[in-house]
Design a protein around this nucleic acid. Sequence first.
DNA 1: GTCTATAAGCGGATAGAC
DNA 2: GTCTATCCGCTTATAGAC
Lengths: 186, 186
Amino acid sequence: MKETSRDRLISAASRLFQLQGYHGTGLNHILKESGAPKGSLYYYFPDGKEQLAVESVRMTAEHVRERIKQGLDQKTDAIEAIQGFIEKMAEQYQNDDSQEGVPIAAVALETALFNEPIREACQSGYESFQQVFTEKLLQSGFDESRARELGVVINSMIEGAFLLSFTKGNNEPLLLAAKNIPALLK
Amino acid sequence: MKETSRDRLISAASRLFQLQGYHGTGLNHILKESGAPKGSLYYYFPDGKEQLAVESVRMTAEHVRERIKQGLDQKTDAIEAIQGFIEKMAEQYQNDDSQEGVPIAAVALETALFNEPIREACQSGYESFQQVFTEKLLQSGFDESRARELGVVINSMIEGAFLLSFTKGNNEPLLLAAKNIPALLK
DNA sequence: GTCTATAAGCGGATAGAC
DNA sequence: GTCTATCCGCTTATAGAC
């Protein structure tokens, strides 16, 4: 089970892009944190920073999607499951003392208008989250179009609450989002 | 009614920070767009880019707050008013062909962990938005604690939907947020 | 394939002329 | 007060040794 230079570069990039955004994170910083030498960056990612960002966003998205899925599996009822998942996120956020950023969002906002490959990666990530919520709702008996619609809405709610919690430095918006999920899904 | 170099610098900075974020926007770019020379930037903003960002965020926030207020004044009932406001935003977004960014969010995400003055400005901005929603709810008879709570939740919902719409390049998330506002406020 | 040394350019900031 | 010329550091990217 060897961890290659490539993997460590992506991990470091994911972390730093989340904390400081795309333009706020220099390649040198990523190299230092990953321990990889500069040469291998351009060996593994011939298209440079852009490619590294695309693959980092993909990895982050996959990771987050798994966490959502696992979170929702804790309860059978969709409403309780989603509410519980958001509460867990709020808890984790408080404990980490906010040493994690908001996944994807910073990169998406900085690049959406100017860098199509990165924008697409971010969009795919968001759609994969939404898909997980929609599936859970389907399993709980929501009809298809309603489940799809609510997948988007729940995703919006969580992203917004996360953004506000991150900016304020406390988890109140996440907790309130969780609390109001039942009303939204009735 | 003279428009000073200072005003033009703040306007240009606000616009560019919204589109590309804090680190993605260089002072040279701001100077070029504003037409002001570099010297006067440091004359008006001795603390440089950071100060310019703080004041830009304040200006943007004030501007957005006014738009929210005006939007909510269109209807007396809070639920209809908020729903209508979000729909209007969605419409404008589509027409502008997305030549506007998501106010404040990019700057907030990039800087929240590392630059306290900017973070504070963003937080104040968000709180001022939330305040407007809360006031409208109070006027419609919601009790105080519930109105405050929902102010935060509505703010989260809108910010998240805006972020997703911006990333996807279409206004569906905003439209769905609007559609589901009544359920949330029942 | 893995890595180092270096290039070329842009970043924010400043000094000092007028 | 208003502006220009310039500085240093850090950016991304590359050339080429091993």
